[in-house]
Design a protein around this nucleic acid. Structure first.
Length: 226
DNA sequence: GCGACAG
DNA sequence: ATCTTGTCGC
């Protein structure tokens, strides 16, 4: 698929934050997004070490939303492009993730990212960044909380409670299975929070969406050479 | 100032 | 993210 060119790369945390602030106005947060996406892509990254330059593998797996069958897979290997700094995760993984996306023959209807979208200190997490660079609807699904507070949702699958930060609902704690810890869903680009949660429930057979599980396994295998 | 902090 | 054993439960 076609993706936008990468912007100049930051060499400091201050520059990275400035880039996030500059790109944030490009976000489309007013459209509900596809009600019936036919294809959904999951993205994830595995690492071999720490710090800048650590070897990593970025994977993208495209699934049929209805059957959850794998339609296409793409993996790219590279190096961490930035140190890990909470709030600047995108700068670590973006170049290799973009390589994997560029190699895709099909263009997914939605991108499900491992991490956050608007539930971010500057409202511009990895899912937002990937949304601006690809132009596609994106959402973020994270395993742990980062910003905001929430009250535990009811124990039933489908229950949710708002993730609040600065008096804003920046995401939702969503129970994807009965009696299982909730995941944290937030919007990235061209998608409403309601639609994001509804879609996550449709593709989740376990705690994490199938998209994320498939991408996690693919990136891990690519790093181990198998 | 101190701790917490997506992956 | 990654380093790691056994164990409880569907």
């Amino acid at each position: 698929m076609e993706v936008r060119d990468l912007h100049p790369w930051p060499t400091s945390a201050a520059e990275a934050k400035a880039i996030q602030d500059g790109l944030r106005p490009l976000l489309d947060l007013g459209t509900p997004g596809p009600a019936e996406p036919r294809t959904v892509a999951g993205l994830d990254v595995s690492y071999a070490g720490d710090g800048t330059g650590a070897p990593l593998a970025a994977a993208v797996v495209v699934l049929d939303t209805t059957t959850l069958a794998v339609l296409e897979e793409s993996v790219a290997v590279g190096r961490a492009a930035f140190p890990y700094v909470p709030g600047l995760l995108a700068f670590r993984e973006l170049p290799t993730l973009m390589d994997a996306l560029r190699a895709l023959k099909t263009t997914p209807d939605l991108l499900v990212c491992d991490g956050y979208g608007l539930a971010h200190p500057r409202r511009f997490g990895l899912a937002c960044h990937l949304g601006v660079l690809t132009g596609l609807p994106t959402i973020g699904v994270a395993k742990t909380s980062f910003v905001g507070t929430f009250t535990p949702p009811a124990p039933q699958r489908g229950a949710s409670s708002p993730l609040v930060n600065d008096d804003e609902e920046v995401g939702r704690a969503l129970r994807t299975q009965d009696n299982v810890k909730p995941v944290f869903v937030s919007v990235g680009h061209r998608m409403s929070l309601d639609n994001a949660c509804r879609t996550v429930l449709r593709i989740a057979r376990h705690r994490l969406p199938e998209t994320t599980r498939r991408a996690d396994r693919l990136s891990r295998d690519a790093l181990s050479g198998a």
